[in-house]
Design a protein around this nucleic acid. Structure first.
Lengths: 255, 255
DNA sequence: CGGGAGCTTGAGGGAAGTCAACCGGGGTGG
DNA sequence: CCACCCCGGTTGACTTCCCTCAAGCTCCCG
């Protein structure tokens, strides 16, 4: 995590080529917060028509940036992070497909107090704030869903604050995994097995721990039969005990 | 902090008597985020016309409450806090006069995922969400100032998350005090000496530490000549070194 | 084959937690 | 009125969780 991509991409026509893929992840996400009709979905598709691939490790939004365009994360993972001059780093949020980044839903232009970085290779669409605002005055259901998503992101922030303040390393780790399992849930319930593209270093930055200790905690959780993180795949073997350890309640993730 | 007031009030006509005091703290706070004209101030005064005193330690908003009225904090301090079943508690935010609590600026009705408690005796005004919304459609400057205040509160949340995740106990404490000094600033700059009505127990809950350790850290900061907390008065003797220790930058508190 | 990134494990240290005792002040009840 | 008692603050002794430093591993890639 030096800021430079650590793994070179396989050859593509261009690093940041246009793609015509749809706005599906966005529709799936926002649809959780209220039904979207065909016009809403169409508007979303138009807003995200031109999307771009960006390599892992790249900065999507630098700290200090003024907010003038919204970034719709369509594929891949990203994170908000705050870097210290002395090298310390805190990951403030983990962003997954369907997240709207740098959304200024309060119409208060502020400079970014943190940066946003691509964790994996990501596909994003850049939407001028004005374009989005114009669409939202016509599409109330969409506007409402977006506000609900923002409210949930704020609730996640509070949950993380509590997590860092009160829980032990083991509990923190379990809590983070429970949250991600819930956020990546489909109709069949929370994901018990999913791709987790975070290095132990990144987990450390998210949990306020050192990479070494993250490793030990993961080993302990594996030895205890709770879960396993192998080759970027997280498997929660014992969801009940994992939830209990984390004292996890998913209510804050609902609108 | 058992949930019951620990200090009984001196006799008053009634515990929750009406008061006709004005909306000055609210005007002062929101005025920082944009000029308010006489009509705006008047509207605020009308919204907060009937205010109530509530004893310290009382719960203003219980966890799980649906948001139907905004609570304007006019005098005294309060805090947002999250309680665990096993007795652990995390203070998520410290609220000072001028704060709007349970403001639903995104118009997304959600159940409260934490509680709000009076730290000191507080004077509050309860404003039905609908009344506030009605006023804001007519008063754009006011609406904007309130959105800006909400954006700053969210930035404070991020700053606290980083504080808990990355800083040592000493740094955390210094950071919190720098933030409060800045938030309580007047024209002459950050407050170097102000009433801090938080017990060491509450500081511990805010900083993710134990009360015993808070005491030791305070002693150390005092011995080192940085600051002093005596009888509920915080005096920052050496603002420069305190800021340096905390690596404090107040940019996030500005709109 | 060499080098770097990420993962793993061990040994030792330090920051913060735990347990316990004591003090002082204010409220309360005998 | 005085004696408690409780709460908050203070300090010491000891423990523990997590960090630091360091080495060695695998895998991928040049």
């Amino acid at each position: 995590m030096t800021g430079r991509p650590t793994i070179l991409e396989p050859a593509r026509g261009a690093d940041e080529a246009f793609s015509d893929s749809g706005a599906d992840p966005l529709i799936a996400r926002l649809g959780q917060f209220g039904d979207l009709d065909a016009r809403d979905r169409d508007a979303l598709a138009r807003l995200t028509a031109g999307s771009t691939w960006i390599r892992d490790g790249r900065s999507l939004i630098p700290e200090g940036q003024a907010i003038d365009v919204v970034c719709a994360l369509l594929e891949g993972w990203a994170c908000r992070c705050k870097d210290f001059r002395d090298g310390r780093r805190q990951i403030i949020a983990i962003l997954t497909p369907g997240d709207l980044i740098a959304l200024d839903d309060r119409a208060i232009p502020r400079k970014f107090d943190h940066s946003v970085r691509a964790v994996t290779r990501v596909r994003v669409a850049w939407i001028p704030q004005a374009d989005l605002r114009d669409v939202l005055v016509e599409h109330h259901g969409l506007a409402r869903a977006i506000r609900a998503a923002a409210a949930v992101e704020e609730a996640i922030l509070r949950a993380w604050l509590v997590n860092l303040g009160q829980r032990s390393a083991h509990e923190r780790m379990a809590f983070l995994f429970c949250e991600l399992a819930e956020r990546l849930a489909d109709e069949s319930g929370p994901a018990a097995r999913f791709a987790l593209p975070l290095t132990q270093q990144m987990l450390a930055h998210a949990l306020g721990l050192t990479p070494v200790h993250v490793n030990r905690v993961l080993r302990r959780l594996r030895d205890d039969g709770l879960l396993e993180l192998q080759d970027g795949i997280l498997t929660i073997h014992d969801p009940i005990r994992t939830r209990t350890l984390a004292d996890f309640n998913e209510a804050y993730l609902r609108a």
